[in-house]
Amino acid sequence: MLTSRIRHVVAAALVAILVAAGSPAGAQEKSRMDIVLERGKLIVVTLTTVPPFAFNDDKGQLVGFDIDIARLVATALFKDPNKVEFVSVSAEGRWPAIESGRADMGVGGTTTYPDRAIRVGFTRPFIDSGISVLVSKKSGIKSLKDLDQDKYTIANLNNPQMADRAKRFFPRTKILTFDTPSAQFLAVRSGRANALQIDTPSAEYWAAQNKDEMEVLPGLLGASQNNGIFMKPGDFKWWQWLDTAVAEMRTGSWYPQYSEIYHKWFGKKPPPQKFYLQQ
């Protein structure tokens, strides 16, 4: 049993945490932009479990499309893609990492949702993609329609959009919910689930890595995903610069660099961002 003194300490600590968490963000603080420029290095929080966006390669190096995007941001700031330090966390560790100021910004297959944007600032998307379904070949599932049977199980990630989509497209399919994409993948591989839903590039990456066992079903699950750079909300100068940087990557002067990274990870050119450009 806790003694009363310890109880008081615990209560005081909790109150302190609540006060710290509840304090208004960015009231008269120095902009992150200036802090980053002074420091001469960008600190980026990222995941390590979402290939091909951010993952560890065979040599244990952190690589991926999102990692290269962060390096491109560092290049824009410091003319050096290596002036960046990555902080690897689990999915739910992303928000405290930027709220506490431990990292300047974050990437890592992170989708922009309106409910998230209440607490987290997002730039415009640096990539958009569909949601695909990856199935094990053993299951014999050939189309999205096949999957909607109660003898099948689909592995979801623990975000609400996954649950909504599963309810809409596969109301009869049994659902398992995991906290990392790699656990989803393991579930299909071990036979726990027959299928999983994930961003199209991830599904295609895994299918290519496991040609004998898995394939991506034709067609997409309706909704598209916008992945943005996220940062602490309320810091106008920092957000404005990052958003401009992303805009330049996708539709402006940095399109060649962006295009190169896109091709490196997805084996094709990015879709044309302006109607008068040929792909």
Binding site: W95, D115, A117, N158, P160
Partner: peptide, 13 residues
């Protein structure tokens, strides 16, 4: 808690 954090980004709460 993980589900709610994914939905809202409010990890502390």
């Amino acid at each position: 808690a993980k589900l709610l954090t994914e939905q809202t980004g409010a990890a502390y709460e």
